[in-house]
Every structure is written in C-alpha cells, then in structure tokens.
C-alpha cells in the first residue's frame, strides 16, 4: 500500500515536482525503486536458472518494462485486482507477490503459487489481487472486465487493471471487452504495454492505427499515452484512471510506450530488430536508471542508499531460489487434483 506524502515531516513536496513526488512519501518511493530491482533481478535469476537447466519450458522476461508494472500498481491497494499476461513476472511482483513462491513455481514445486501446475505463464497470487498471468494473448482482458462487473454489482469499491501487450490489441477479445467496459461504465483500467513488437511483428506492421491508445476513441473512453519507462509518468496516468474508475465514471485505456530488452522467449533469434535499437533503449532509456536519477535529484535517496537496497534485493533473490530448490515436488498421485472443486 502506498503512503501519501505528508507535508512537513522532512518530506517537502515541491509544487513544481511531478505528481509522483508530490503525492507519495519518500519511503513509498524508495519501496517502488526496490520493487523495480526486485523485478529485474528476479528475471535475471530466472534466466540464469533456465540457462543452467534448472527449470524447463519457456519464459517471457520483462526486463526493461519494470516502470509500467510498478508505476501502475503504485495506485492500487491489495484489494484491487489485476489480470496479467505471458510476460507477467513484473506485474506479479509489483502487485506484491513473493519471489520465493514465484521461483518455486518455476521449479515446479508444491510451494509455488500454482503448486507446480502452472509455471511461468500462469503465475497468480489471488490473495494479493493478481488473478493471473495468461498463456493466451488477450485472454485476461475480458476476465478483468468480468472482475470489474463484480466490483460494480457487489459495490466492493475495487478497481481492476488489465495488463496486455501491443499484440493483444488485434484480438477480438480486446475490442469486445473494451466495448462492454464502456457501455456498462465498469471500474477497469486497460494498460497496454507497447514494447514495439508482438513477438517479431512490429506495431507498424500489425496495427492500423499509430498508437494503441487511438483505439480508445472507438469505445468512447479516454486514451492516454505515457512514457512507459518513466515511473512518474505512468503513476500519474494510473492515478487519474484509477480515480475515474473508482468514481464510477468508467474505463480508461493507458498506453505505456516501452521496450523489452530480451528476446520474445527462449526461441528468439532477434532477426526483426537491430542491435542498435536494443542498445539505444538499454543505454539511454533504462527505466530503473531513470528513476534512480530522479530520486537522487529530489534528495530521496543517495548512492549508499541505492547500494543498500540492491544488496538487500540480491539477498532476497538468493533466498528465493534456495527456497525453491529445497521445496518438495508434487506427487504424481495428485495429478487430477484441482481439475474440479473438491466437494464434501
């Protein structure tokens, strides 16, 4: 849960500073930075475990996209909900999941979030409002709308965020879901993480409009474009959209322009983009470096503070992997458990 900035208490929020720094207290901001490290180091840990043959299958890493996951979830409470994607590790961590149980899932263990049944593409932490990653592009979007329908009917006050990629905006599910959210004024925020490509297919080759946010006009909702590598920009847009949803004014479509550093998955030869393009994003637009610089500039953290957080995150990641390795495998005898609800 994000803490609000208090005037006084040594945390002056200058009127000319961006919303993020006016709205949240320093601890919350430092925690947000910590989450970004946690995501990046989690992805690196997962990648290394995969390379060393400790985990199988495939995985989609969100390195380079940490700002949108963290910036959006800053505005959500534990009670609010999200639906996520195949590239969902960052969303999961930003929404409060424990990396130990996420690693355990990758290792196929009973202590994993899906008890070893789901793996990377199905991580969910329902207790923290994460209704799940998804193996189907666009699959989570209507589900988010359904969750928002529940929130409205049961008057829970919850807001639901649906994360999806640029590729998903060409699925029918996207269009049908946005339309229903709009006609029923549901408390949902659609967050498109536009990293420029759906697998190898660029947005320019796959999508008729220049911006995914342009689609919002067809469903009579606000469409907002933000620098998806700036936590401050993302958080400001998220705050506005979440408030609007909570007021009962209906959905918003936010497009976060971002970039994925790694290949689409483990089978990517990276033949559809140039090394220069990748390097430019990595060296000039890294979301974590960008956020660090702002925090330092506003006097919220210093170099020693940054190193202390990094070290703490390294310890958490190492402990998470150790926990995953030590955890028990599921029993084959339980193969058919969870297909249906057990009834007395």
């Amino acid at each position: 849960m994000a803490g609000k900035a208090k005037n006084g208490a040594g945390e002056p929020a200058g009127a000319n500073q961006p919303f993020l720094y006016r709205h949240y207290d320093h601890k919350t901001l430092r925690d947000a930075l910590r989450k970004m490290y946690l995501i990046r180091q989690f992805e690196e840990g997962a990648e290394e475990s995969y390379m060393r043959g400790l985990i199988h299958g495939t995985m989609h890493l969100s390195i380079g996209q940490e700002a949108s996951a963290v910036g959006i979830c800053l505005g959500l409470s534990d009670d609010d909900q999200i639906t996520s994607t195949h590239r969902g590790h960052g969303h999961s961590i930003a929404k409060g999941a424990e990396v130990s149980r996420m690693f355990a899932e990758f290792f196929g263990k009973t202590t994993g979030y899906c008890r070893g049944r789901g793996g990377s593409m199905h991580i969910a932490d329902v207790s923290k409002g994460n209704l799940g990653a998804n193996g189907i592009v666009g699959g989570g979007i209507p589900i988010a709308v359904g969750a928002a329908l529940t929130a409205k009917k049961l008057k829970t006050g919850r807001v639901v965020v649906s994360f999806f990629g640029d590729g998903a905006n060409n699925e029918g599910a996207f269009h049908e879901a946005l339309n229903m959210a709009a006609i029923w004024k549901l408390p949902v925020v659609f967050v498109c993480e536009n990293n420029g490509y759906g697998m190898s297919t660029s947005v320019a080759r796959a999508t008729a409009v220049a911006n995914i946010a342009d689609r919002a006009a067809a469903y009579a909702m606000p469409g907002v474009i933000v620098d998806g590598n700036s936590v401050a920009d993302v958080a400001e847009a998220a705050h506005e959209a979440i408030e609007r949803a909570r007021r009962g004014d209906g959905p918003t479509l936010i497009e976060c322009k971002t970039y994925r550093y790694r290949g689409h998955s483990k089978s990517d030869r990276n033949r559809y983009r140039t090394k220069e393009e990748i390097e430019e994003w990595m060296s000039e637009r890294d979301p974590i470096e960008h956020f660090e610089e702002e925090l330092v500039a506003f006097g919220i953290i210093d170099a020693a503070g940054i190193e202390a957080i990094r070290e703490d995150v390294r310890r958490e990641i190492a402990a998470g992997i150790a926990f995953a390795k030590e955890s028990p495998m599921p029993e084959v005898a339980n193969l058919e458990k969870y297909v249906y609800t057990e009834q007395a």
Partner: peptide, 16 residues
C-alpha cells in the same frame, strides 16, 4: 491422455 489439463511440472506432465 489423463482427464486433466496439461500440468507444468515435468513429472506430472509426463504422467498425463
């Protein structure tokens, strides 16, 4: 195939 979705864990997957 077993009467279940395909699980992720490799041992369970084989068993399906």
């Amino acid at each position: 195939g077993a009467e279940t979705p395909i699980p992720y864990n490799p041992e369970l997957e084989k068993a399906t």
